[in-house]
Design a protein around this nucleic acid. Sequence first.
DNA 1: GAAGATTGAATCCTCAATCTTG
DNA 2: CAAGATTGAGGATTCAATCTTC
Lengths: 147, 147
Amino acid sequence: MKDRSDTEQAEQGGQSIFRLLEAAHALEDRVESTLASVELSGPKFSVLTALATAKEPMTLGELAAKLSCVKSNMTQMVDRLEADGLVQRVADPADRRLVRAEVTPKGRERQAAGAEVIAALEAKFSEAIEAEDSLAVVRMLRSVCSI
Amino acid sequence: MKDRSDTEQAEQGGQSIFRLLEAAHALEDRVESTLASVELSGPKFSVLTALATAKEPMTLGELAAKLSCVKSNMTQMVDRLEADGLVQRVADPADRRLVRAEVTPKGRERQAAGAEVIAALEAKFSEAIEAEDSLAVVRMLRSVCSI
DNA sequence: GAAGATTGAATCCTCAATCTTG
DNA sequence: CAAGATTGAGGATTCAATCTTC
């Protein structure tokens, strides 16, 4: 009948926003630990996936835009990926301001391994949640963006 | 009929996990910017709230446990809160290993201001989302924890 | 000057190692 | 030796300032 203690209710105010955020963090942790099994972090997997599915090496600015982060973040992210040997910076001959990131063969393998474990998690996830509940979440997402 | 482009579908795989995480991040950003109006960050507000609702100054270890993070995180968090003048470290006379954090009057005011703007956001949020959708999210949270 | 990338400093977080006190 | 806190190092992120190239 009561899953959360009375003290918890009193202290956190039972606010749905924070409950939601807490749930999301739990899911995120799950994704992180899943990817850790193939020596990847969530953000690194995202970058690798963007790069692996793009036909041409992408500009750091394009990557930042695609992943909704600031450019300086991508500079450092690519530094780390390059240190891992998963990505390589290539200069653009046409416009020397541009720096493109190219997936290395090792990076491509790593991304594929990540995609595999994530697909498995996704399958378990879809199985566990009710179909209608999934739709509810999509509706909520829209609400959040509009308030 | 299509909200997300075909390229997006292809590249991100339309995975519900990532859609969910994306939604959560949007909500989190909203919380952050709301708290920023009273010069607070999400994590700082959480610590201040824990401290303000506790009767006695809490140990850093207790705080870390309550907020589900590692102890070293709390050491640094309290460093920053102390620098802001919102919290003060107090020594425990009984056990000298313990360091307790005490909310200052300024910290208490700040927390109250944060609680106010968050309550307003919470109200808008509850209004915007369908009641059933909220329940769906809670069910999903349980699922996530069990997979 | 404006666009692209980088650097430096800050927050928030983790882990492993260390100090201090019990 | 246990327990509590801290320190040091690093990942991921932001912002403001800077450098290079157009």
